[in-house]
């Protein structure tokens, strides 16, 4: 199978969906004439024209709210945040209006919009530009959240997101944009349903759950651990809402151990939620407590050494698995 970059996979998903459905449009900062701040939308203006690939001023509140209003009106907006860090000024639009409109209107007005962009630290950008929003936003009912780790998942999940009738928060990774992986050619259409975890590595001794970029750290750690005779099962939920807890629980029943990796902050995090749900459903199957590997509970620092120390990495995951399986 051909290999393409994560950014190319995103572009293909948008391009193919826009070709399929005239109601779909892409809007955001520098998406059109600049060809995308990160080249995700490169060439899309040329293909679809300025009506459907729309540059905006730096006005996150206005253009994310515009996406919500346009979705209520029957269009299918893709709203790009250059970074999810910048969405915070638009919080009222994306977490008050988008996910609650259907409920507040008694089912009259849904919001089939996709909000997408880079999520996560790792580029020495300092705290304001280094948000991982998955824990903060996944507690909001009414939205869905996808967080692809590979080009294959990025394309399949984004196509599903665009066709979904509910608001989808689509969390990409700047650090993965150039990452290459196998993706079927455009003529082989595929979609990845939400709420269906992917077992990235089959194993028997310890379950590692990770989402987004840290999946790759988990796979690195698993490689090292395998050399030492510990065979990890690496599970990628791919969507946080809906969350495929069943696949995680089934794996824990098999391995007896669980490490959860989450690039957001530990307090009330996605990792905490997954751990709690596993405790609720599979306490008797656990041979030890669950260990979480989160960001350290501090703002993201600029200093490279400190930043790397603060984030989840393969070494921390390796150590967590060793610690949790000590009694195996």
């Amino acid at each position: 199978m051909r290999e393409i970059q994560y950014r190319e996979a995103l572009r293909e998903a948008m391009t193919e969906e826009m070709a399929r459905d005239s109601r779909v449009f892409l809007m955001g900062e520098e998406v059109a004439e600049y060809n995308g701040a990160y080249k995700v939308s490169q060439g899309m203006l040329e293909r679809f024209g300025p009506k459907r690939v729309v540059d905006t001023p730096i006005s996150e509140t206005a253009f994310s709210g515009l996406g919500v209003g346009a979705a209520m009106y029957g269009l299918r907006p893709i709203i790009e945040f250059m970074s999810w860090s910048f969405c915070l000024v638009a919080a009222d639009q994306i977490i008050n209006n988008a996910p609650k409109m259907l409920y507040m209107s008694g089912g009259q007005f849904g919001v089939p919009a996709v909000f997408r962009g880079n999520n996560g630290a790792g580029g020495q950008l300092g705290s304001t530009h280094s948000w991982s929003v998955e824990s903060m936003f996944s507690s909001v009912p009414g939205l869905k959240m996808a967080i692809p780790a590979t080009p294959y998942d990025a394309k399949g999940l984004l196509r599903t997101a665009i066709r979904d009738d509910d608001p989808v928060f689509f969390l990409e990774s700047e650090r993965l944009l150039g990452f290459k992986g196998p993706v079927p050619p455009p003529e082989e259409e595929y979609l990845i349903p939400f709420g269906q975890a992917d077992i990235k590595l089959v194993g028997t001794d310890c379950t590692i759950v990770a989402m987004g970029r840290p999946i790759h750290f988990a796979l690195q750690a698993a490689l090292e651990l395998a050399k030492e005779g510990i065979h990890c099962e690496v599970i990628d939920p791919r969507t946080i809402r809906p969350l495929d807890i069943d696949t995680i629980v089934a794996s824990v029943r098999k391995t007896g151990y669980l490490v959860v990796v989450d690039q957001s902050w530990p307090f009330a995090s996605v990792a905490s939620e997954i751990a709690m749900q596993v405790y609720e459903q599979a306490l008797d199957d656990l041979d030890n407590k669950i260990i979480r590997v989160n960001n350290d509970d501090v703002p993201a620092p600029y200093n490279r050494t400190l930043e790397q120390e603060m984030l989840p990495n393969a070494k921390k995951i390796y150590e967590a698995v060793r610690a949790v399986t000590y009694n195996a």
Binding site: K51, T61, A62, G65, L66, G69, A70, Y73, L75, Q93
Partner: peptide, 15 residues
Amino acid sequence: GQCPLGIGIAFGIQY
């Protein structure tokens, strides 16, 4: 908060 929604509806009309 309805102002951004309003321009979204207007965008829909234009679109």
